[in-house]
Design a protein around this nucleic acid. Structure first.
Lengths: 223, 223
DNA sequence: AGGGTTATGAATATCCTCTTGATCGAAGAC
DNA sequence: GTCTTCGATCAAGAGGATATTCATAACCCT
């Protein structure tokens, strides 16, 4: 998942960014509204986290401009606590949710997930957050992959990749799509990282390694 | 926790009530606004879940009347999806949060907890019982950790950390989440306190120290 | 104020991950 | 059958992340 964080306080931004990255998400950061809007013109995001208080262009204006440009990306707005007027204004200008500062990290993550789920129309009954495929289970809360009951050690990128593959069962994924989702790359396809990681996963998945099939000229498919 | 649910559709009400009860909460149900207001005059609640579309007195009016009576109970409003006007109106009339229908149960629970936490200013995960994991027992009332029957002396931060870890068994927790939850930090990621404390705990837990595993690139997991 | 405990930040050493480029192999085109 | 293109695999270096220790600062209790 790709997230754009627009927040001027660097220490806060850094804290949030690290936390989101630890969740396995790719985070881009912009200091101010103008920069944020520019970045959004270059590439798309799954969720935008937008501070209301920004130097120059305020969060409300950023949101307004996004909507004026028909950008449908869900926006989570960070507002001062108990400021009903700000919350109301934010919603009117097209924000999808708000979170009063200071917030609990758990809640931030829950809301980002909720927004993403809602915008993608993800099935809502995925209750336990586990991806299953026969004897292959990836528990995204524990960040643990089990192969026939045995725990397999994975690195961060490997985890993201297997989660993406299993979540897209039976769909072919292009290298670009994978790069974008796991690595956050939006250009520079002159790398073979994806191939290398697919190889590692195949090895680690043991008997299930064959489930990752190569779609020549297109990418990879799991299922 | 005591919750008042005001919802006219019986099927929805039943569904929600069961789920909330499963969380261990006490749920009262009212079919319509008037009944809801009456019940609230008799007794207090920690959170009110209020459907917007009600026969007779609408959700907005209920909320308005509550506030007119200086009732500060946090209100979570259930609105139709994408109805910005309703959301805005709800907030203006004193709702504290809204949740667009259809919603995920997890999200409902998360928001109810968040509202409660905010209004009481307490950390939510303080289940007053004991956290057990094999020979490891943390008694959160006595604030005592026992390892195979032997009491282990812990400092305040160490206690909070082990309590958090044990309460989140088998969930990976990022350093930022831990910092946020135990240290109350909202910024300043330039510290390695978490690592230091994890190290101390591992030592003090003796044979159970290995239960705290490092999830590289993500944080720590207990279990 | 003093003694002890607890909390924090810095420094270091170690280990692991990531990435790249090269080489080898397989599949499809002609 | 040969050529060409695309994918698989390998190994090594660079960079990052984590564990651990220590010194200092803050705190608390008499």
């Amino acid at each position: 998942m790709n997230i754009l964080l627009i927040e001027d306080e660097l220490r806060v931004a850094d804290f949030v960014r690290r936390g989101l990255k630890a969740e396995g998400w790719v985070v881009e950061h912009a200091d101010d509204g103008e920069t944020g809007l520019e970045i959004m013109q270059d590439r798309g995001f799954d969720v935008v986290i937008l501070d209301l208080m920004l130097p120059g262009l305020s969060g409300q204006h950023v949101c307004q401009k996004m909507r004026a440009r028909s950008n449908p990306t869900p926006v989570l707005m960070l507002t001062a606590l108990d400021s009903t007027d700000e919350r109301v204004a934010g919603l009117r200008l097209g924000a999808d949710d708000y979170l009063p500062k200071p917030f609990d990290f758990d809640e931030l993550i829950a809301r980002v997930q909720a927004l993403h789920r809602r915008s993608t129309g993800y099935a809502c009954c995925q209750s336990d957050g586990k991806l299953r495929h026969q004897g292959l289970i990836y528990d995204s809360a524990a960040m643990v992959l089990t192969v026939d009951g045995r725990i397999v050690e994975l690195s961060a990128k490997e985890r993201e990749l297997i989660a993406l593959l299993m979540a897209s069962e039976n769909k072919a994924l292009s290298r670009e799509r994978i790069l974008n989702s796991v690595w956050g790359t939006h250009e520079d396809p002159m790398t073979n990282v994806v191939d290398v990681y697919i190889g590692r996963l195949r090895k680690k998945l043991g008997p299930y390694g064959k489930r990752i099939t190569t779609v020549r000229g297109a990418g990879y498919r799991f299922g």
